[in-house]
Design a binder for these strands. Structure first.
Lengths: 194, 194
DNA sequence: GGACGTAGAAAACAAGTGTTTGTTTTAGTA
DNA sequence: TACTAAAACAAACACTTGTTTTCTACGTCC
């Protein structure tokens, strides 16, 4: 009979390890971050990481998965109370961007790291990201749009603009929620004057 | 009297070297590409690269600069004949995206590589990119928009959506020009039905 | 109290990294 | 023919990379 109860030790540094990995993968990318970079701040030796993960890629997969979990959670909580389709989209975008820019290193990894950069687990990462973005498919499908408007294009434009903001956003100067609302407003209200 | 004319050799492989560097930096990033990766396909030895460039970063700088030059050229040619502000923006976006997705490996590098990933030349890269994007500042400033519309937000949204398309675009399935026109149309015409 | 799983330390491994150094080949010039 | 610069070769440099192996302290459970 196998043992269902595994008792973790109190001095377990795995959480710290994941946090640091998220911080570095998110800011320097996968190839730009070495295992020694990660373990250094956790006061661990390089080899010790391999007790928790079989390979560097698996560490990334764990961080990436946690990142998807955290964004999904934030977005789900944000749209829960909204009923108006446009307000639901706006709430989701604000939550997405706040998680991405101001809250979680884990979320940054999801946006920053390209699955194609890590062939060994690329398919897994794509599946995770697709599963998350399905929320936005539903949200944009519910929008009352003029006939002929391409909903896929609208969704790709919105998510693209949000995700790219990671490259120019500077904390203090910019405000994540304001940016997200600004993008949604541009799609919702006409900008032209014809 | 010294000789201003230096005759380059005919078997000079520098152009091939730059092409290959652009291809790899664009598809695998800076840290993800080794010097041996680059020189291999050009039938060169690692050390020979250092006759042309003092460091790996300088090779990237050369590729990046050429990338900016190529996109700028394409965009300038595209807007030259247009007079209507919205059509100028559309032409610029189509040219930007076609260069980025279908034409030039060099252009991909400009979008793919983050200046912060290469601290040694980061400031130079930022300056180059800023200089290019100034075209879009002028283009969006000329748009006839309703009072109160934030032009910076509009520009960041447009460029962000375009640049991010690099992550999901697949040749054959997608069409760069159509994507660009779709994005511009969403900003130009109202999508809602209020 | 012996067995066992946890969470690492310690040290090394082979392969790969950017780079340097001395030398060679090629070709135009005086 | 002698000289010089261009462009690369050949081989190594010191260091970093991801990973493996062996050993050890600690707590839990029968």
């Amino acid at each position: 009979m196998n043992r269902p109860l595994r008792v973790p030790r109190v001095d377990n540094r795995l959480p710290m390890l994941l946090d640091e990995a998220a911080r570095l993968f998110g800011s320097q990318g996968f190839a730009g971050t070495s295992i020694r970079d990660i373990v250094r701040r956790v006061d661990m030796l390089p080899g010790s990481l391999y007790y928790h993960f079989a390979a560097k890629e698996d560490l990334l997969a764990a961080v990436y998965e946690e990142g998807v979990r955290r964004i999904s959670e934030r977005v789900a909580a944000a749209i829960k109370d909204q009923v108006d389709p446009w307000q639901r989209v706006e709430a989701a975008c604000v939550a997405h961007l706040e998680a991405l820019l101001e809250e979680s290193d884990y979320a940054q990894v999801v946006i920053r790291v390209r699955p194609s950069d890590v062939p060994a687990i690329g398919a897994r990462l794509v599946a995770l990201r697709d599963r998350y973005e399905r929320v936005f498919v539903d949200l944009t499908d519910a929008l009352p749009l003029r006939a002929g408007t391409d909903r896929r294009t609208l969704r790709l434009m919105l998510l693209g603009a949000l995700n790219w903001s990671q490259t120019w956003y500077r904390p203090g100067r910019d405000d994540a929620a304001a940016i997200a609302r600004g993008f949604v407003a541009l799609l919702r209200r006409p900008s032209n004057q014809e």
